[in-house]
Design a protein around this nucleic acid. Sequence first.
DNA 1: AGCTTTCAGCTAACAGAGTTAGCCAAACCT
DNA 2: AGGTTTGGCTAACTCTGTTAGCTGAAAGCT
Lengths: 187, 187
Amino acid sequence: MPRAGLDPAAVVAAGAALADEVGLANLTMGLLAERVGVRTPSLYKHVGGQEDLNRRIAALALNEAADAVGGAIQGYAGRDALAAAARAFRAFVLEHPGRYAATIGIEPSGPDDPLAVAGRRLLGAFTAVLRGYQIAESDMDHALRMLRSLWHGFATLQASNGFQWSADIDESFEWLIAFADRGLRAG
Amino acid sequence: MPRAGLDPAAVVAAGAALADEVGLANLTMGLLAERVGVRTPSLYKHVGGQEDLNRRIAALALNEAADAVGGAIQGYAGRDALAAAARAFRAFVLEHPGRYAATIGIEPSGPDDPLAVAGRRLLGAFTAVLRGYQIAESDMDHALRMLRSLWHGFATLQASNGFQWSADIDESFEWLIAFADRGLRAG
DNA sequence: AGCTTTCAGCTAACAGAGTTAGCCAAACCT
DNA sequence: AGGTTTGGCTAACTCTGTTAGCTGAAAGCT
């Protein structure tokens, strides 16, 4: 039995990719094992179990999202940065719905949890966007939560087909960006 | 063996209550059976299975949310209606996190699916809020999606402890209401 | 009331996913 | 080469969901 040359990172990456393909709910240990060319119990040499796998996929997703958003806003400020960040975030969620779903409803165990660290990285990218607006220091946290709620809500609703009727979704999203920009400017 | 006097509605109601208590992820058929005083297989006389149960809980939650929001805005208009709707919605999600979670990531099978009907009822309540603002007909859908995204995002993030640091969450929520009000007014 | 029919709840049994235990051989390290 | 580590395997167990088939209590009919 030749070795497959796996390590935790490879298993998590494969799990994230598989979740994107089949949906997080259908990501099973057996399916993942088959994908990486190994029998199910062998996965336990690399991850602690299904819950651990989920948390690692979530941390990976948040880090990737932070990279995507952080990269997208380079060289932009104000409304351009806001639009770039929003589009990059939504694109990431739509391209990687499975791994992003892994981040929903999950709580970091403490401030040093890789999940919490990755979350702060993503938050940092949005904070950078807000620096381009004249926002009182006391309003920063509120504005940050507003942005998170707005983009997270939109992306998850769209990812689950929550918008039923037919008005163009891209158009709604651009409208949302304009709305947030106006609001942040008029604060 | 005396009969328990169950029917689908009773099972679904108990399932929703249990989901609120233990979390949707921990809602198991066995636990629900125990709660209603019956052996597990007996549940299948009332609901089709776990997925069917989930959908029914989701429909119940959406109807209840629609009632809560619709009731809260009675007699109010404009910003008062917006604030009342937002607070009622958030309160509902925080009081019933389990059943609300059942609505996430679920797709109605068609326009007559009770889930779709309930979803439209909730949407109708938010539409009523928007009537208090001067919004162009072409912007209505966008504004509606904005409100849904904002409240859904905020409520779900808070329900999963997604807001890590310490700024007061109620305060952020009131800030969000003011933000949305300004934005809708300046549209 | 008695008879019939229906059906809610039961036990038994199975399928599938997650997980643990324990073995063995491949890779690594002197 | 010898010894150690460790990744992969098989076997086996648990727990959850589900189906099949039985049975007696409730509801309806005459």
